[in-house]
């Protein structure tokens, strides 16, 4: 799936993982959080092999489809996940507040909208204050205002020292990252800052830049 793929994601930064669907973003993220069978190669997280038990307190993962219990309320979900990290109700409430669901905390996840569900899912990932946060398309279907708030939150987490890896297939989010990984068909096309990607492609528009980098590769 991912061939000849080598990259490093820096601590205390927000790294964007960009590429069309089917490009291998999710496979890479699953490998980092340690749930993917890795056929060959190594994945090291915070100095340990990905998936090793001591990382399980330090890694937060939000899957693309919201993976929370639909038959529990938002609060019950957050409290369960908080408990897994030996944290209490206040940590759960904080996480719910961060994702803007305080007003819906007592509602069953099944009765929430798609965007609210994925925020509930996000709350369960940030509740343990992970050092590494891996987010698979966390902003899909979110209200623009809320998306802005979520990105501000990712930046805040990174400023506090967390490593944030966010996948997206929308380029307008790419500009908010410290570093970009552009992936296509399992191949790493670019691994640089947004500014450097723009410069290399000779355009300010990241969408165009991605296109040019791909074309350049195909031609080469």
């Amino acid at each position: 799936m991912l061939d000849g793929f080598a990259c490093a994601v820096l601590r205390g930064s927000v790294t964007g993982l960009l590429g069309p669907s089917g490009s291998g973003k999710t496979t890479l993220m699953r490998a980092i959080v340690g749930v993917q069978v890795v056929a060959a190669g190594t994945v090291t997280v915070l100095g340990h092999p990905a998936g090793s038990p001591r990382l399980r307190h330090k890694v937060g993962y939000v899957t693309q489809a919201p993976s929370v219990y639909a038959d529990l309320t938002v609060r019950e979900n957050a409290r369960y996940f908080a408990g897994l990290y030996r944290l209490g109700a206040s940590a759960a409430d904080r996480a719910i507040e961060t994702v803007g669901l305080t007003g819906h905390a007592g509602q069953l996840v099944a009765n929430l909208s798609g965007g609210q569900r994925s925020r509930a899912s996000l709350a369960c990932a940030i509740v343990g204050r992970p050092e590494v946060l891996v987010l698979d398309e966390p902003t899909v279907g979110q209200d623009p205002l809320l998306r802005d708030e979520l990105w501000a939150h990712f930046r805040r987490l990174a400023a506090e020292g967390a490593t944030v890896l966010v996948s997206s297939h929308v380029m307008d989010e790419a500009g908010r990252c410290d570093r970009l990984l552009l992936v296509r068909e399992g191949v790493l096309i670019a691994d640089d800052t947004p500014a450097a990607v723009r410069a290399a492609a000779g355009t300010d528009d990241l969408d165009q830049a991605f296109l040019r980098l791909i074309r350049g590769r195909v031609a080469a």
Binding site: R30, V33, G34, V35, P53, R56, H57, V59, G60, Y61, T63, A65, P66, S67, V68, Y69, A70, F81, L84, Y85, C124, G128
Partner: peptide, 13 residues
């Protein structure tokens, strides 16, 4: 199938 199992396996469960 809901993905919660996969997610749980990234936690200390």
């Amino acid at each position: 199938t809901s993905g919660t199992l996969e997610r749980l396996f990234t936690t200390p469960v």
